[in-house]
Design a protein around this nucleic acid. Structure first.
Lengths: 198, 198
DNA sequence: TGACAATGTTACCGATCGGTACGTATTCTG
DNA sequence: CAGAATACGTACCGATCGGTAACATTGTCA
């Protein structure tokens, strides 16, 4: 056992080609858009070759779906993270997330929500990218409804939809306006809607 | 004079190739996405040939820019139209537009705002599509501020940004959720924000 | 009739797209 | 060490991308 090779404690670049592809694809798809990025660009930037990509993923569409599932997971983590600092206080939890989002969305190179962008890039309902992204959005809607119920809203579903509109609006307007865009008002507006609905 | 050929009183299809290309490109770009549509598809569906396209437009990018300028003009018309029914009442004017938008955005095949979609499809600031779309959004923001001033908001710029978030949120969530999506709450939420800000 | 502008026809260009057949390293196991 | 897996690279495929050259056809107006 003691002679067993250590499993590379700090691998600056992942050993496995599939992982490198997945990470590179994530960055490129998010920053430049999915349709704008070809598989050639992904593999070359990942330092691997095309057959490695197609051994790990059935097709580009499957790689896209994997990217969106990764994005969904990271989103959930970002969304739920403030909950640790505000246990049993869904309102503070949600507002903390929105405040952080507002800051990010007003940064100049903000590129919005990868899932929202995917719905727009792939409007066909049958496309895997569309399906994964829409499913994630439906989960988010349900989660918001749950939080609105917990914070004692008169009509939780209604408030959840209002907040969802503000949220999605921040995603897209962040890209269009950059620094000083309308997303800076996200916190103010969300608080106003919540106060008027409890 | 009487022998002069009548100028085709009801031309079901426009005579000029450039016009047909422009109209076909508008429909295809809007419904399927810009990057998803090739020039071949445009000319074949328009019933013309590729050289005709490139005689009227320098490049595909220029055709895209033309599409977005057309979209911007049609948007302005839709946005300003309710003003005729509500002269000197910017609040009623705006709410009338939002109510119509909410209805459209909850229809199942809604495809959002072509300008917003273009910003997402072309995130590079140098791209003509990006520039035309962003300029249109800045004009809209300024128009909203003007309306909020006229309706006597305490902080017109703040309210305008809040309404803009709801608006953009309706555009994108309409595509993701379709029938019964959050956009149905657009009118309620806009009224709530306005009432809390006057 | 003749000149002119607009459009169609056909065939093509280099570049890039997503995807693959096939051979070569590397590594784990006996 | 042998030998089977496992992981990867070289070189290539047909299709499509945006874009063009050269020429024929049409309708309009003088």
């Amino acid at each position: 056992m003691r002679t067993k090779p250590i499993p590379e404690s700090a691998p600056e670049t992942p050993r496995r080609a599939a992982d490198r592809i997945r990470e590179t694809a994530f960055d490129l798809f998010y920053r430049e858009g999915i349709r704008a990025v070809g598989v050639e660009e992904i593999v070359s930037q990942a330092g691997v070759t095309k057959p490695s990509l197609y051994r790990a993923f059935e097709s580009k569409d499957e790689l896209i779906a994997a990217y969106l599932r990764d994005y969904d997971q990271r989103f959930r983590e970002r969304f739920e993270a403030p909950g640790a600092e505000h246990p049993r206080d869904p309102k503070a939890h949600l507002l903390a997330y929105l405040d952080r989002l507002a800051t990010r969305a007003c940064h100049d190179d903000y590129r919005g929500c990868g899932l929202t962008n995917a719905v727009i890039e792939y409007p066909e309902r049958e496309h895997p990218a569309h399906q994964v992204a829409v499913q994630s959005k439906q989960n988010l809607r349900e989660r918001l409804r749950e939080m609105c119920r917990e914070m004692g809203a008169r009509d939780p579903d209604e408030l959840a939809d209002g907040l969802l509109l503000l949220l999605e609006g921040s995603y897209v307007s962040g890209q269009a306006f950059g620094e000083g865009g309308p997303a800076r008002m996200l916190g103010v507006m969300a608080r106003r809607l919540i106060e008027a609905s409890i």
